[in-house]
Design a binder for these strands. Structure first.
Length: 304
DNA sequence: GCAGGTCAAGTCTAC
DNA sequence: GTAGACTTGACCTGC
């Protein structure tokens, strides 16, 4: 048997049927204190259930949905409402400790630190401030990173990268949790390594994006960018029924896990599996692995 | 109960 | 010009 138990696994946001989710939301026009609290407490309660599920499946990492606190960074939200929920977030930190699952986040495409537009940058910083605050309240340590993409190119990639560097140096608090991921269109792993080296930030290797938008890279540099922390990587597989070129598949194929392993042989890495079937994709992957003589970390769940 | 329209935000590509 | 991609279809209204 090939032993891949050094790969920690995890899924994100919700179960595959979306019944248990940290990402409930509502329309901005319906924003009231009661709606806000109602949705938040449902998200928080499901978050604990998702931690339980992760623990039961012997998973290492879980990505918390950005909608956990609805409209947290929106100007229409009364900031005193955030104060009201702080103690409940702090009580959830006990559950995180109890289940021992690593928590990270990945804000939406609207967070763009390379944008030339001041209003976009300001909104991005507000959104990141919210993510950092949430993880702080949850008592998450420095392995709880907030993963962003570099953003757009705006006709001049070098200038966009320069703006990104300037912003992170100006707002040095970003360095506490920020991590940067290669994307499938503009900024490949080589670009992200270049950027992260200058900013001393960790690189999130997305295997799927790398296969679509490849570059040469030194795997040791990716690993060392984490400065002793366990790296977080992302893995997904192409859809079995071909759809759009960059759409994530429902499942994870064992070949992709083996290819990732081949790039980072034997290293302890946490891998978020970005499959649409979420926890069911992990169960299927473990079965596939067993059929192929591979032991994955979540194997113990199959034994109940 | 169900169908269909709508939803905070940016940027880019495919059609 | 618009839909769709991205971390994700859920929510809401009108019938």
């Amino acid at each position: 048997m090939k032993d891949l138990r050094h790969l920690g696994l995890g899924f994100f946001c919700s179960t595959s049927d979306n019944r248990i989710t940290t990402n409930r939301k509502f329309k901005l026009s319906n924003l009231t204190l009661s709606k806000f609290l109602n949705v938040f407490y449902q998200n928080l309660s499901d978050f604990v259930v998702l931690l339980e599920i992760s623990k039961r499946m012997n998973l290492s990492i879980f990505r918390l949905g950005s909608n956990m606190v609805p409209f947290a960074s929106h100007s229409n939200l009364d900031k005193s409402w955030l104060k009201m929920i702080e103690k409940d977030l702090k009580s959830a930190s006990e559950a995180i400790r109890k289940y021992g699952v690593r928590i990270t986040m990945h804000p939406g495409q609207h967070v763009i630190l390379s944008s030339p537009r001041k209003e976009v940058l300001d909104a991005s910083l507000r959104e990141l401030e919210y993510h950092f605050w949430l993880l702080d309240c949850l008592g998450v340590g420095n392995d709880g990173v907030v993963v962003v993409h570099v953003g757009g190119v705006y006709g001049d990639k070098k200038e966009a990268l320069k703006r990104f560097i300037f912003v992170v140096r100006e707002s040095s608090w970003l360095k506490e949790r920020l991590a940067i991921e290669n994307d499938e269109r503009f900024y490949n792993l080589e670009d992200v390594l270049w950027l992260c080296e200058r900013l001393n930030l960790p690189v999130v290797f997305d295997y799927y994006h790398h296969t679509i938008n490849p570059s040469d890279f030194d795997s040791k540099m990716v690993l060392s960018s984490w400065d002793g922390r366990i790296p977080e990587f992302h893995l997904s597989s192409f859809p079995t029924v071909s759809k759009k070129f960059n759409e994530h598949g429902d499942w994870i194929e064992i070949e992709d896990v083996l290819s990732l392993e081949n790039l980072f042989k034997g290293e302890r890495i946490d891998v978020i599996l970005e499959a649409k079937k979420k926890e069911k994709a992990i169960e299927r992957l473990i079965e596939l692995a067993q059929d192929n003589g591979v032991v994955l970390s979540a194997r113990s769940l199959m034994k109940g």
